[in-house]
Design a protein around this nucleic acid. Sequence first.
DNA 1: TATTGTTATACTCTATAACTATA
DNA 2: TATAGTTATAGAGTATAACAATA
Lengths: 148, 148
Amino acid sequence: MEYSADECAREVLEVVPVVMRGIRTELRSHRGGDISVPQFRTLFYVSRHEGPSLSQVAEHVGLTMPSMSRIVDGLVARRLATRETHQGDRRRMTLALTTHGHAKLRSARQTTEAYLSQLFRTLPSAKRDTVVEAMRVLRTIFAETGSR
Amino acid sequence: MEYSADECAREVLEVVPVVMRGIRTELRSHRGGDISVPQFRTLFYVSRHEGPSLSQVAEHVGLTMPSMSRIVDGLVARRLATRETHQGDRRRMTLALTTHGHAKLRSARQTTEAYLSQLFRTLPSAKRDTVVEAMRVLRTIFAETGSR
DNA sequence: TATTGTTATACTCTATAACTATA
DNA sequence: TATAGTTATAGAGTATAACAATA
């Protein structure tokens, strides 16, 4: 079809916010305590890295340090994460998930993926392939955009 | 490739928030006064419909009426939109953009689309096609999700 | 001095519940 | 009674600027 970069930009700008709203609504209506998108992303990152620092998480999630500091406040208050001073460099924090945090992340993922999955289930598989491939393209393009 | 609906859901859940953050950051760093994503979407909807009511906009943007009422408060305060009582049904509001509102929408779109476009420019055109087609699939699937 | 993180401050977004005005 | 919208209330997300502690 040979779509231009401009056409591509227009479509992404119109559609991505709509999809995002679906995701946010689903996460927030999670039974047994909701969770915000930034909280979810933070839990996700921390679960996959070994005791990351605050700035590391902020960098990868794409937020400023004060914003991330607030988000971690909330996670710690809800007993989903722990925040300890790093051994060796007392300026740094070492973040980790509690058992409860791991469980919350798992159930939030499951519920939200189930919601999305149900929307995709009736699609012809060629269209699902298109969506997956597009996500991989976007992931690559935006990979190094998270820097502040 | 035959990806499953679950695989599709996983990819969307991981990638869409990242793209969304890029869009938000670009909109908010707009020279000459920033604008939030919900404000942008509201301006966009109002610009394309004839004097819509508050509930109409709320429905299509995917927010509750109180939330939309606040957002319109902000737009009116910034002289980007007008809000008048509907002639014939005095319960309803009639929304419209000011000249300034049209200009702001136009420049915000231009700037943000230029930012995205520049990211897409170096892609092989087959990948751009994939992205555009995926957006159209997602648009269809999520079209009727905006209901509260 | 440079780095890491928090606090202060100020907005916006968002929802639910309660209310007002109109139909 | 039902509909359209606002207000009250509460909490989260977000940024910039200023600060504290450590290296």
